[in-house]
Design a protein around this nucleic acid. Sequence first.
DNA 1: CGTATTGTTCGACCATGTCAAATCACCCAG
DNA 2: CTGGGTGATTTGACATGGTCGAACAATACG
Lengths: 263, 263
Amino acid sequence: MSNHPADDGQTGIKSVDTSLDIVETLTTEGPMTITELAEVLDRSPSNVLAHLRTLERRGFAVKENDRYRPGLRYYEVGNSIKENYPLYVHGTDPADELAADTGEYVWLMVVEQGLGYYLYKTGGEDAVESGAYTTGSRWRLNATASGKVVLAHMDDDELDEVLDAHGLHSMTPNTITDRDALEAELETIREQGFARDREEAAVGIRGVAAPVRGLDGVIGTVSLSGPASRIEGEYFQSKLPQLVTETADIIRIKHNGARAVDR
Amino acid sequence: MSNHPADDGQTGIKSVDTSLDIVETLTTEGPMTITELAEVLDRSPSNVLAHLRTLERRGFAVKENDRYRPGLRYYEVGNSIKENYPLYVHGTDPADELAADTGEYVWLMVVEQGLGYYLYKTGGEDAVESGAYTTGSRWRLNATASGKVVLAHMDDDELDEVLDAHGLHSMTPNTITDRDALEAELETIREQGFARDREEAAVGIRGVAAPVRGLDGVIGTVSLSGPASRIEGEYFQSKLPQLVTETADIIRIKHNGARAVDR
DNA sequence: CGTATTGTTCGACCATGTCAAATCACCCAG
DNA sequence: CTGGGTGATTTGACATGGTCGAACAATACG
């Protein structure tokens, strides 16, 4: 019935699944009418209407000139999640500084359920805006510098779990898709303390990422990215890693300091 | 059973409501265990578990050291909504400039279901960070300069509807809570083309807001806010209104220009 | 070891989510 | 103004499946 993974025998609420199907369809496909939704999801219009009424009453869906779209309550809930992340709270200012110093994009990423979410993006006045690169969207961990950093600091069980769940998906010809090659890369990352992205997520874009360590484990990453024309040579080899690692340290210190004071 | 408004006889999906109850509780109260949630929402733990399993499988809830919290998919959906707003797409750069020129906070606000949502906040290096003021949260329209601007440009039916739905809630002693006083204020706003906030949303904070007009009606607002100690005198009376209105015009032109090109 | 607490499974009941069909609202073409 | 077509909404009836309680498992604590 549902086309979603993990539709296993487990307990679950099917009607909640349909509401989520509706919202996800509206986010990916754009605003739709009731009949269109009913068509796509293969359910009766009356049923779709019932769901949309519930969602609309709660602010999670909105009718806008005869079409429905997800409501801004998603934005409200999402923002509140973001602001509860220590990485975001303590990371934005240092990230802004790094961006100002380098003129490139600087990112903050966290991992949830084996996928990377970019919580913050800053800077990049000189850079070309590449549409796909934006905050909020999910990324597979093997394809980005930030993702590889997090993978490098997982124990083996976690690593297996993540790779089993999401695989080694290829984004560009340079994406690491071989398990052994990935293991070697992760070892290198552990040794040097940071990761490089050699046009593995998008052609023409290189980057460097460093882990931000919390009291137990990595709480997220800082990364910097820009066009391969600028990110190269000694700058790419040693200067940027140094800058990014320093920024990660600043965030770590702010974070751990704040935690101690919390008590 | 439910404590929510509009629990009228209309058609709706009750189990979706409970899932939304769960998520909203988790956002406002913070991470909770299953039994805690069951307690608060007055339902069986097994039922709460079934909901959380569904939400977790879809990334809309996450278990984090024995407690559940809303998942980052809310952030993802919310961000995608935000980025579809023309006000956001064309407004951030002009807002940044205004913030750089004045050193105060600059905001972009849109209205959904009669409530104001701030999509963007920028600047304010000199200003004190006031916790409640953040993007994403909903505001009643009568209590802010931005809100009043939108109300001023509604037709009477809409105005009645909004005020009936959300009332004239007071935030500070200066909040306009009288219907006639509000009508007079809205008339003034229409005449002068912008609105002032005289410590009506928060004590010690003043602001100015201007409407951004689209092809049919107001698509949102730009506003500027800061401490009453700085926002006063001639600056508050004429300079700021001029700057904010200019910024609104810049956004409007970018917006309408872009729309024409879309064809 | 027991005891308390929370998470999870299971079975059964009946609320309710679902669909089909009928009705209504709206828009155009003629 | 009329009629036909499209999409939204209402209604009623059926069976799915959402719900709860009770039993069970897992864990923590003394």
